[in-house]
Design a binder for these strands. Structure first.
Length: 863
RNA sequence: GCCGGAGUGGCGGAAUUGGCAGACGCAAGGGACUUAAAAUCCCUCGGAGCUUGCUCUGUACGAGUUCGAGUCUCGUCUCCGGCACCA
């Protein structure tokens, strides 16, 4: 071994070794019965796969470092581990690159994958690349199409018109995040709402199950579960019909509304319908007025409406009330129409004030009075007034009683509603999965027959950024014979949302090379059923709803297709925090990269720069650190160690260059210790320090032995409990500090030292794998360190035989004394009371009582 | 507005079930080694006070429960994240 820690040489050496030896290969999938191979448990460790944008960033580094520690640790604990990686390879940036640089999206994507794969390997991540998944390959997206067809057969896929963000210049749909201040992010044209035919997955069919399933997500962070529940947005209420009235009285026409507050139904003073409600066009005479409301639909805070000129009747009161069209009423939720109770709904209140509509109080706070001059709606629950036979009811009781009454009278019925909408998957883009549908003039919509899958993306297209999807220009792709009648037909040119790709990739990993989902149907002993669900999923919080919800939906669909037996895809979820760093701004040159700031001055103009706030690393703020540069300067092990040490994984991590040096110093310290003792017979082999030997050890050796066992316990607990690697690493640093000040004087001391060093390396291995391997080898360790089991501690040897007893008087620390561990309470009490200092403090005062906490403290309470 | 989460030294962060606040690291200061520097090693390091090893004080703020509160309860403030006309 070298005197100096040459990280580059070491890291390359061990990466090659692992690869040559196939150390990261997944063990063959054992049969499901008899509990797997000899009772060995499986562990599926998964990190969210990246979009191949070109280079990995610090967010990836952190995500993958966390996952790698878990995977390596679990393997050392003897688990059968699956730890795969792949590429979320479809997406808009590839198309933009094609438009800008003229390089084909496929070429651009695969080149990026090649580079990023090297970067991941350079980090020393233990992926089984045999299971790599690339979503833009036909072998993969074929199954998106198959899945689409299967859902289509079950009526879970349908086509309907809906409003989308449309850029007239680019002739394409834009995602919400691509609309900036109402304009296209690429060409700055004004974005319009356009009604477009789109394909939808019927996720609402699983709304209730997805909601119920939330209660079983015990291994997920509470806030993510809360966000999912919130997103699904279940509410219970009543649908009620309000007949329309004309001069002659009640007509046959009914206006159906949905409300969660039937207890306020006696307070209805008007009704509102959405501008897109079918009745709006029929009822309103002045089309200009209606169009003005339509133009303000769903956008502005300001509430505006127009009277339809028609009335409806509240069947509970027989009151005739006006019907309005209002911009704030959503067509997509409930029935697109509402009953307005201005006294008890703030939105209705504002609207009523604006248009001079009556406000009728029907709920008063419990023990309160009716307020004659309302300044705002009272939205709380209370006691009913002005509500006929329901007067005096509490809101909760009235909700039930009125709902029952409405059902009895057949005015309406109880109803559950959800906020979640069906998932629109159509994208007018090239670089995505073609939707396997054919349009025939004679036969209409015809699904592509399963045997014709995959529908392959054509390569003979050009990328101009104009005229919409390039697929429209590929005649070879577009023109097709109808599978039903054989006549001329056209293919669907929309592609699927890329969230489809990422909704089941974790299932694809289970299948190694051949992603044949169909052949897995009803196979209870399939490798899918062996590995799924994922035991630990790790990724960013930004996917708290979309990706995670879609994956839960897909897993249930796959279950109903017989592909998988689990309901939930991810047993435990760890959402890691963001990687942040301070920002720098020059008055002339705007944001600056860290290397553009020297001594607080801008390197371009020498002006004083301003230190901005600490923010998530981003290219736009230029507060980024390049992983490549960091690996070059300190090595992958240091980079990994720091990103795990600086904060617990779920919390944001503030990047600190000085902190990185600290991690580097620590590794060098360990290196120095091993180098120092290597020539002096550092013994690392075997388990020679068993309990009986300990009796012969010197006090210092015995103390080091104890510290070692305590550290194994602490590190194991910290990892097992909640992956708090920061405290695990801190414990290792403590042990190393003790080793470093240890001076062996005889054979036994050396043995104790060897034992401590050996275990330090073992525990360091998941965090700094190359480093640990190199020193393991240098100290005579045989084979890879990862082929050894994680160390165990001996509870007897970890136990302190003396503890520091704290003595308090009235809860304040007054003395500390060393006492034997396990000292009986009464003895502890006596010792505390006899302590010179304590006696002095007590000064003969009356002792009210003495509290003894075993092994911790004695508190003397004075009168 | 609603739903989450957080608030501890100069900084990142530790503190099983309520039981020594500040582990570990960074920064800073002092010292050793060196012709000098770097590296390394040793010491100090929440605040205040003095008799220099002790006292008081201290975990956003204010109450409370308790022998004892960073931790539990109630109220207030601030920050971050998500959702937001969902009837």
């Amino acid at each position: 071994m070298k005197q100096r820690y040459d990280f580059t040489e070491i890291e390359i050496k061990w990466q090659k070794y692992w690869s040559d030896k196939g150390l990261h290969k997944t063990p063959p999938t054992p049969p499901l019965n008899n509990g797997g191979q000899g009772g060995v448990k499986k562990f599926y460790c998964l990190e969210m796969f990246p979009y191949p944008s070109g280079k990995i960033h610090m967010g990836h580094v952190r995500n993958y470092a966390i996952g790698d520690v878990i995977a390596r640790y679990k393997k050392m604990r003897g688990f059968n581990a699956l730890h795969p990686m792949g590429w979320d390879a479809f997406g808009l940036p590839a198309e933009n690159a094609a438009i800008k640089h003229g390089v084909h999206p496929a070429k651009w994507t695969y080149e990026n994958i090649g580079y990023m794969k090297k970067q991941l390997d350079r980090m020393g991540l233990s992926y089984d690349w045999d299971r790599e998944v690339t979503t833009c390959s036909p072998e993969y997206y074929k199954w998106n199409q198959w899945f689409f067809l299967k859902l289509y057969e079950k009526g879970l896929v349908y086509k309907k018109a809906s409003f989308v963000n449309w850029c007239p210049s680019c002739a394409t749909v834009l995602a919400n995040e691509q609309v900036i201040d109402g304009a296209c992010w690429r060409c700055d044209s004004a974005v319009v709402q356009k009604e477009l035919e789109q394909w939808f997955f019927k996720i609402t069919a699983y709304a209730e199950e997805l909601l119920q399933g939330c209660d079983e997500l015990n291994g997920w962070p509470d806030r993510v579960v809360a966000m999912q529940k919130n997103w699904i947005g279940r509410s219970e209420g009543v649908e009620v019909d309000f007949p329309l009235a004309d001069a002659g009285g009640i007509t046959d026409e009914k206006l159906r509304i949905y409300t969660t507050r039937p207890d306020t139904i006696f307070g209805v003073t008007y009704m509102c319908i959405a501008p897109a409600h079918p009745l709006a066009d029929r009822l309103v005479q002045g089309k200009d007025g209606l169009n003005a409301i339509k133009a303000k639909y769903g956008k502005e805070e300001v509430k505006e409406g127009i009277f339809t000129g028609h009335y409806a009747v509240n069947l509970l009161t027989d009151e005739k009330i006006p019907v309005y069209v209002a911009n704030f009423v959503l067509m997509e939720y409930g029935t697109g129409a509402i009953m307005s109770v201005p006294a008890h709904d703030q939105r209705d209140f504002e609207f009523a004030k604006k248009y001079g509509l009556p406000i009728k109080t029907v709920i008063i706070p419990e023990g309160g009075q009716e307020d004659e001059t309302l300044n705002e709606a009272f939205e709380g629950e209370g006691i009913l007034v002005n509500s006929g036979k329901f007067n005096g009811f509490k809101s909760a009781d009235a909700k039930r009683a009125i709902a029952v009454f409405i059902e009895e009278k057949a005015f309406g019925k109880r109803m559950v509603n959800y906020k979640i909408r069906d998932w629109g998957i159509s994208r007018q883009r090239y670089w995505g999965t073609p939707i396997p549908i054919i349009y025939c003039d004679k036969c209409g919509i015809v699904p592509v027959p399963e045997k014709d899958l995959p529908v392959i993306l054509p390569e003979d297209v050009s990328f101009t950024g104009k005229r919409g999807s390039p697929l429209l220009e590929s005649a070879r792709f577009l023109n097709v014979k109808c599978p039903a009648c054989g006549g001329n037909a056209k293919r669907e040119t929309d592609t699927m949302d890329t969230f489809v790709d990422s909704s089941w990739y974790f299932i694809a990993y289970c299948l190694k090379d051949d992603i044949d989902l169909k052949s897995q149907i009803s196979n209870l002993k399939s490798s899918i059923n062996y590995w799924m669900p994922v035991d630990q999923y790790i990724g960013g919080i930004e996917h708290a709803v979309l990706h995670l919800l879609y994956s839960r939906f897909f897993t249930r669909c796959m279950r109903d297709l017989g592909v998988i037996s689990a309901d939930e895809p991810f047993r435990n979820l760890l959402t890691q925090g963001m990687v942040c760093k301070e920002t720098w701004k020059c008055p002339d040159h705007d944001w600056l990269f860290p290397e553009e700031v020297k001594d607080g001055k801008c390197v371009h103009c020498g002006k004083q720069v301003e230190k901005g706030r600490i923010e998530k690393m981003s290219k736009s703020k230029k507060n980024v650190i390049d992983p490549d540069a960091l690996i070059k300067k300190y090595g992958a092990d240091t980079m990994r160690l720091f990103s795990l040490f600086a904060a617990p994984p779920e919390r944001d991590l503030e990047w600190s260059d000085k902190g990185v040096e600290g991690a580097y110093r620590f590794l060098n310290k360990v290196w120095g210790i091993v180098y120092k003792y290597k020539g002096q017979g550092l013994r690392v082999k075997g388990q020679e320090l068993s309990f009986p030997v300990a009796y012969r050890l010197s006090p210092i050796a015995s103390s080091l032995l104890k510290k070692t066992h305590q550290t194994i316990r602490k590190v194991t607990d910290d990892i097992e409990k909640d992956y708090h690697f920061n405290t695990a690493i801190a414990a290792l640093m403590e042990l190393v500090n003790e080793i470093s000040s240890f001076n062996p004087e005889n054979e036994e001391d050396s043995s104790a030292l060897g034992f401590a060093v050996k275990n330090t390396l073992m525990m360091l291995a998941p965090f700094a794998p190359h480093f640990a391997e190199e020193l393991w080898e240098a100290t005579g360790g045989k084979s890879s360190i990862f082929e050894h089991l994680w160390p165990e501690w001996d509870e007897m040897l970890a136990k302190d035989e003396e503890i520091e007893l704290v003595v308090q008087i009235n809860g304040r620390l007054r003395a500390k004394m060393l006492v034997p561990a396990g000292l009986p309470d009464e003895d502890a009490r006596q010792r505390a009371l006899q302590d010179e200092r304590v006696k002095e403090m007590l000064n003969g005062r009356e002792i009210k009582k003495v509290i003894v906490v075993k092994g911790k403290l004695v508190n003397i309470v004075l009168g």
